[in-house]
């Protein structure tokens, strides 16, 4: 009772061939180049950068990253229905990070400190976003 089964795995080979390796290698190099350009070769300004803190897309605080250490808990302009308990810390090396938060994910706490424009730390359950401007 031999069944002619459609063997789905016959459609895959287990070795890589030249054309595919070339495509993957090209993608790899392009990505590497883009990363290199963005993180190392972009021109940077020499003045201090400012970090803007947004709550529900409204700017609530703007701090200059000038090397002075500072730790504080975010204060909302008017206390809405949800409480936000986020501790922000500016480091001596002019980076800003989130020390603690009352969100369940804690993604904001685990995001590394940011210092360059375009980088951001977001606590989405609390609707808080920290961005760096030029």
């Amino acid at each position: 009772m031999h069944q002619e089964n459609k063997d789905s795995s016959q459609h895959i080979t287990w070795k890589i061939n030249k054309k595919e390796a070339l495509i993957l290698g090209a993608i790899f190099l392009v990505l590497l180049g883009l990363i290199f350009w963005y993180y190392f070769l972009r021109p940077t300004t020499s003045h201090y950068k400012t970090a803007d803190i947004y709550y529900e897309n409204e700017l609530i605080e703007s701090v200059v990253l000038d090397g002075k250490e500072k730790t504080w808990t975010l204060e909302l302009p008017e206390n809405t229905h949800q409480t936000v308990d986020i501790e922000v810390h500016i480091r001596a090396d002019r980076k800003i990070e989130v020390l603690s938060s009352n969100c369940p994910d804690k993604i904001c706490v685990h995001t590394p400190a940011i210092s360059e424009p375009g980088q951001s730390i977001a606590c989405l359950p609390n609707h808080v976003i920290i961005k760096i401007e030029e």
């Binding site: 993604i107 904001c108 995001t111 590394p112 940011i114 360059e116 375009g118 980088q119 730390i121």
Partner: peptide, 10 residues
């Protein structure tokens, strides 16, 4: 796993 690059969330 932790995040490795600055500004990149985990």
């Amino acid at each position: 796993l932790p995040s490795f690059l600055p500004g990149v969330p985990p």
